[in-house]
């Protein structure tokens, strides 16, 4: 029962979604609507579960005396946004939007900006011409970094065409093979999920 029920549910949903792919794109079948509704609503509930467990892990840490201040900040942040949204909604110029645009967003992009520094230090440490592979990697990277710099045209006028050719042929050929590989992986995984062979998501191995 504990395995049979989930496996049959995934079979039914899988087969239905597969079949509905071939339905005429102008039709507005209720079944398709309903399935998509279920899919999105379950996902939203999944996020609620995540938030609940997020807060309970942090508060358990506080009660164990692990970094009460920082874990308190964590919970404070998570509760602050819903509180602000309750005060005056999601309108432009609401507290909620202000907090998002002036506190959350700048911090996020600052964390992202740290990458510029890390790219440089990783390039220095790791980008060594050790063997044929790494020499190719290094050369192509240099061509792109110089050629796509806004003043790269002054160094050599042909960069644009060369980079476009690399992108359209050798680089595309490798990426295409990777795309197809991932595509095949998804196809076999999907088949295994639908037919109940793949049960990793139930904790089985």
């Amino acid at each position: 029962m504990r395995k049979f029920l989930p496996i049959s549910v995934s079979f039914v949903f899988g087969v239905l979604m597969f079949a509905l792919w071939f339905e005429d794109s102008e039709s507005r079948s209720m079944l398709h609507f309903t399935l998509i509704d279920y899919w999105q609503i379950i996902f939203a509930f999944g996020l609620l579960v995540g938030v609940v467990s997020f807060i309970s892990v942090a508060s358990r840490k506080i009660s164990r005396g692990e970094e009460p201040f920082y874990n308190g900040v964590l919970i404070f942040g998570a509760l602050l946004m819903p509180t602000l949204a309750m005060i005056d909604g999601l309108q432009p110029n609401s507290y909620f939007q202000w907090m998002f645009e002036n506190v959350q967003a700048p911090m996020q992009s600052s964390v992202f900006a740290l990458l510029a520094f890390f790219v440089a230090s990783a390039a220095f440490r790791g980008f060594r011409a050790r063997n044929a592979q790494s020499i190719i990697l290094l050369l192509v990277a240099l061509i792109v970094i110089i050629g796509r710099a806004p003043m790269g045209e002054f160094v050599w006028g042909g960069f644009d065409e060369l980079i476009q050719w690399i992108r359209d042929f050798p680089s595309t050929s490798a990426k295409r093979a990777v795309l197809i590989g991932i595509g095949l992986g998804s196809v076999t995984t999907s088949l295994r999920v639908i037919f109940g062979v793949e049960r990793t998501y139930l904790g089985e191995r």
């Binding site: 440490r125 011409a129 990277a141 970094i145 710099a149 806004p150």
Partner: peptide, 24 residues
């Protein structure tokens, strides 16, 4: 941003060159 972008690219190229020279 284009001038800053150029400057950053030049710096990365320098780093790659210096890193490889010291490696060799």
């Amino acid at each position: 941003a284009m001038l800053a972008q150029t400057a950053a690219h030049i710096f990365i190229v320098l780093i790659l060159i210096v890193g490889n020279i010291s490696y060799l």
